[in-house]
Design a protein around this nucleic acid. Structure first.
Length: 951
RNA sequence: GCGAGCGUGGCGAAACCGGUAGACGCAGCGGACUUAAAAUCCGUUUGCCGCAAGGCAGUGCGGGUUCAAGUCCCGCCGCUCGCACCA
């Protein structure tokens, strides 16, 4: 009878045919005349080694969209590439003695073959790898262009420095204050870093978010918060007196006139520059006013004191002469920087001995304190405290008994009795106790106060940003070399464009005993001559952050083999923006913000004509992960007391043992018992026996850990190759899209796989049993296909077209999958070999093959061929529902009495309300509920529902 | 602490604009086929009461608006994510 669907032969067969027909290639704009373009892109992978089924979800979603749009007549660009620079390659080199290049390209080769197994409709002729000099040479040219345009600069910046590995660490690589690799305490160092001036576009990056209406609100909000625009005022406070020691030291050295009231040079900083970027001006602490930033100038009359950050220049200057202040700075430095530490840290400070004059009242003298809660990295690194209107200020004032008065009266409060003691009032209200601001609302008072400050030359309106410029220097080998030269006479000089590319040397050494940047210790590579003076000079040995590589790759795909330019302006103009971008929400801020910055930079450097608004991704979808149970073997319990709980649910031994462990017993917040996790186990290494899980090899019970994102480290991965061999790519594709909405995580389970596998078999069994060509659209249906069960199936099939089309367009893949099941169930249910049944069944199967083709392309092709479809289903036009069949001409109306359903009636669509009303009132099942009550109202909602209100 | 999102059967979920709650899948239960198992197929499955017809309750909790609330409003509780002393 029916043979099993043999995916092992069928899937490769169709992949070969697609490749031979070249259907996945994007057409040139000239060849695509009359077609609309669409660019579908999934965030390209880092070639870490092998692909597991968890990765497949992202690509499958993009593929469904790409295939769907191709069927709808679009010229589709759906490319794939490799984010191929990065740290893991160097780690592999150090651990296993393999060259990063070899390791990376081997991984790419393996992963390319795996991805191809999935049957993705990808234009492989456009494949790129960012570690290829053919790619990064354009990036170097672009870096020079950005530099010329003023979007690149150098700056001394604090970095996490690992003194053992001799390298900069990202914040994520600092664990408990120690280097993740070396375990050595991390030091803070000031290094000259290459910076991208992202802040130059701060205003535009923020404003344009509003127009990105096809991005998730969540991502837009995260970027909004990240950019962090804050409007307020900077205020300059004249110094009234100094502690005698400092005043004596500093005062005589002043060279400028003592015009303390004039705005200080600091005010020349552009609004977009972070405060710490000050630099050029040598401050005279005894004379320059103290600048603070505030969003609440309306509360100026409630001022109690000024507070400076521990590393504010004035705090540091005073510390040189004041032991208490020095001690305070030290205390602040000792406090941990972890989030938990910050939250726990009590507010503390020290009186710096400095006194300032209130800008609105020269006789009003306020103290200046150093305070641990003031950040040097935000605003001016100094604040004025208005305790009644800010909780931190209030806590601080209460602790040190600093006097203050409330100046904002909450709505409804009585000015005579209103007091602030423990809880600050931070909302809007009416200003009082504030002379010329009295009676104004918070908003009005802000404007009036700023106007007065401007008049007095004591302040001005300003905008602060949380957004920082992007430090792109990495002291690493496996990255794009920065095209700059350091010359003793000429300084930092750009590499002339004709000398590009600056290629990475291959002959570098990786040795655990020789840490640091291999580029830096290469015997010859960095030695060169200065392009300006021809003197001896050295190359920059820092390489670019790999986020730079991924900030423009989407544009390179439009013209991936161009040797003279990163891409042709016309081609990029044709394809960009990316119409649908698909990726993980973990890139909501950094990658997506950098790509937006880069697109603007490329535009302003004249490299890119489109998209004119600088937005690279028109529509963004952030998909959920594939998660899976974790399994591990536990060992003997360990006594408590020496363990520390980490945020990720693990505990770590305090005394140097760095092995992570799993908590098995966590009682009343006390860790009472800990099991070493000696070994994580792969899902294929364990078997479920009843309600316990055992290790195959030993038969010993295994512990089940959290359900987590598939990751190599937890071993909760299902290898793609093995799965495709066992079940086929279509089953993997179908399963990862079923069950859960695409934006939510989906748990990979054996039972879920079973459902998808059963479906594939069922579809094939039905197609094979049908065993004859299916009717084509437009074929006349026999009259027997227009009645009874045959008609019902035809209607369901045409409605399925409508629904699936809609579901794909709206990223409801799980619902589309459910429609697929529904249609198959209905086809299987229609019995009989009559003319009408055969027609209806054939038509439904043909529709089914098309509807599942974006999801399960191999199976769909096999069905299509068996049903006598012309050509490939992949290139067949998307089916169109017959409106006569899809429309419903009768509707089922529930009849409610007082909101409770009592009956149903079948009625023609659009039936007159009066008729429906009569049918409802006369219905046998309804009547009993109407006896003895008065009908107050009958609500008839056309084609929806009837509700009889009675009492 | 601030911001956002989510709470629906044993499980994953569906329910478009407020209009039949639980589509579809998994697991369960009953049955067919089979020496048996697997596979496949058919039926059934929110809970409670009832032989049944049927009834009552039901979308985290409490209130509200409405003829009608999973959906809207107010107040709680819980979970997830993002930011985190941002002045």
């Amino acid at each position: 009878m029916s043979s099993r669907y043999n995916h092992r032969d069928i899937e490769p067969k169709w992949r070969a045919r697609w490749a031979a027909a070249g259907i996945d290639r994007a057409l040139s704009p000239e060849d695509a005349k009359g077609k609309k373009k669409t660019y579908v892109l999934e965030m390209f992978p880092y070639p870490s080694g092998r692909i597991h089924v968890g990765h497949s979800r992202n690509y499958t979603m993009g593929d469904v969209i790409a295939r769907f749009r191709r069927s709808n007549g679009y010229n589709v660009l759906h490319p794939m590439g490799w984010d191929a620079f990065g740290l893991p390659a160097e780690n592999a080199a150090m651990e296993r003695g393999i060259h990063p290049k070899g390791w990376t390209y081997d991984n790419i080769a393996a992963m390319r073959e795996q991805l191809k197994l999935l049957g993705l409709a990808i234009d492989w002729s456009r494949e790129i790898a960012t570690c290829d000099v053919a790619y990064y040479k354009h990036q170097q040219a672009m870096f020079l262009a950005f530099w010329k345009k003023g979007l690149v600069y150098r700056k001394k910046q604090k970095v996490n420095w690992d003194p053992v590995d001799n390298t900069v660490l990202a914040n994520e690589q600092v664990v408990e204050g120690k280097g993740w690799r070396s375990g050595a305490p991390v030091e803070t160092r000031e290094l000259e870093q290459w910076m991208f001036k992202v802040t130059a576009y701060a205003e535009d990056l923020l404003a344009a978010l509003e127009k990105l209406d096809k991005w998730p609100d969540k991502v837009r909000l995260m970027q909004t918060n990240w950019i962090g625009k804050s409007q307020g005022a900077k205020i300059w406070w004249d110094i009234a007196s100094f502690p005698p020691s400092l005043a004596g030291e500093v005062s005589p050295t002043a060279t400028e006139g003592a015009n303390a009231a004039a705005p200080p040079p600091a005010s020349l900083h552009s609004a977009t520059s972070p405060a710490s970027e000050g630099g050029k001006h040598e401050p005279n602490h005894a004379r320059d006013p103290i600048e603070v930033y505030t969003t609440r100038p309306d509360t100026l009359f409630g001022a109690s004191f000024l507070a400076l950050a521990p590393d504010h220049p004035l705090t540091k200057a005073i510390a040189e002469h004041n032991l208490d202040v020095a001690k305070f700075i030290e205390q602040c430095a000792q406090l941990g920087t972890s989030e938990a530490d910050i939250e726990k840290a009590p507010k503390f400070g020290v009186d710096l001995g400095v006194r300032v004059r209130h800008p609105f009242d020269p006789d009003w003298i306020l103290p200046v304190w150093g305070a641990n809660f003031v950040l040097s990295t935000y605003g001016a690194g100094a604040i004025f405290a208005s305790p009644a209107g800010d909780q931190r200020d209030l806590d601080f004032a209460n602790k040190y008994k600093l006097p203050f008065k409330p100046v904002v009266l909450p709505p409804g409060a009585d000015a005579a009795t209103y007091e602030v003691s423990k809880d600050a009032f931070t909302d809007d209200g009416i200003i009082y106790n504030s002379k010329f601001l009295d009676g104004l609302s918070t908003r009005e008072a802000i404007k009036v106060a700023i106007a007065e400050l401007v008049k007095l030359e004591a302040g001005e309106a300003t905008t602060q940003w949380r957004l920082r410029d992007w430090g792109v220097s990495r002291q690493r080998y496996w990255g794009c070399p920065i095209p700059a030269i350091h010359c003793a006479t000429c300084g930092v000089v750009p590499v002339p464009e004709k000398d590009l590319p600056i290629a990475l040397p291959d002959d570098v050494t990786f040795d655990k005993d020789k840490p640091g940047n291999p580029l830096d210790r290469h015997p010859t590579w960095k030695h060169t001559t200065c392009p300006q003076c021809n003197g001896a000079a050295t190359r920059e040995t820092d390489t670019l952050d790999t986020f730079v590589d991924s900030s423009w790759y989407f544009a390179r795909f439009t013209d991936p083999t161009n040797e003279n330019a990163p891409f042709d302006k016309k081609l990029a103009g044709y394809w960009l923006p990316v119409d649908q971008y698909v990726g993980g929400v973990e890139h909501a801020v950094l990658h997506l913000l950098y790509a937006r910055f880069f697109t603007r930079g490329m535009r302003d450097c004249g490299l890119l004509d489109g998209p004119a608004d600088g937005e690279p991704f028109k529509s963004l979808f952030t998909q959920g992960m594939v998660v899976h149970e974790t399994y591990f073997r536990g060992s003997a319990p360990v006594p408590d007391g020496e363990w520390e709980l980490l945020d990720n649910g693990f505990v770590v031994h305090k005394k140097g043992n760095k092995r992570l462990s799993w908590i098995t017993d966590y009682l009343n917040g006390e860790i009472t018992q800990v099991n070493f996790v000696a070994t994580w186990l792969l899902p294929e290494e364990v078997t479920r026996e009843g309600n316990r899980i055992v290790e195959n090899e030993t038969g010993l019970p295994v512990e089940v850990g959290a359900i987590e994102k598939m990751s190599k480290s937890k071993k909760n991965v299902v290898d793609l190759d093995a799965f495709v061999t066992d079940f086929g790519a279509d089953v993997a594709r179908w399963f990862v899209l079923s069950d859960s909405p695409p934006e939510r995580d989906v748990e990979w389970t054996a039972s879920g796989v079973k459902g998808a596998w059963g479906y594939v078999q069922r579809v094939w069994t039905l197609v094979e049993a049908h065993g004859r060509p299916a009717p084509k659209p437009g074929d006349a249906a026999p009259s027997s296909a227009s009645e009874g069960d045959a008609l019902a199936l035809r209607q369901l099939a045409h409605r399925a077209i409508q629904s699936v089309t809609d579901d794909i367009e709206n990223f409801r893949f799980n619902v589309a999958v459910a429609r697929g099941y529904e249609l198959v169930n209905a086809i299987a249910k229609l019995k009989g070999d009559g003319e009408g049944a055969v027609f209806a069944r054939g038509e439904a199967l043909r529709i089914l093959a098309q509807l599942i083709s974006p999801f399960m392309p191999h199976l769909a092709e096999e069905c299509w061929e068996t049903l006598g479809g012309e050509g490939l289903v992949a290139t067949a036009p998307w089916p169109v529902a017959d409106p006569a069949l899809a429309a419903r001409n009768t509707v089922t109306l529930p009849i409610q009495v007082n909101g409770k359903k009592r009956a149903e009636i079948e009625a023609p669509k659009g039936a007159a309300e009066a008729d429906i009303r009569e049918l409802a009132l006369q219905h046998a099942a309804v009547k009993p509920f109407l006896e003895g009550v008065t009908i107050r109202k009958v609500i008839v909602v056309a084609d929806r529902i009837v509700n009889i209100v009675a009492s």
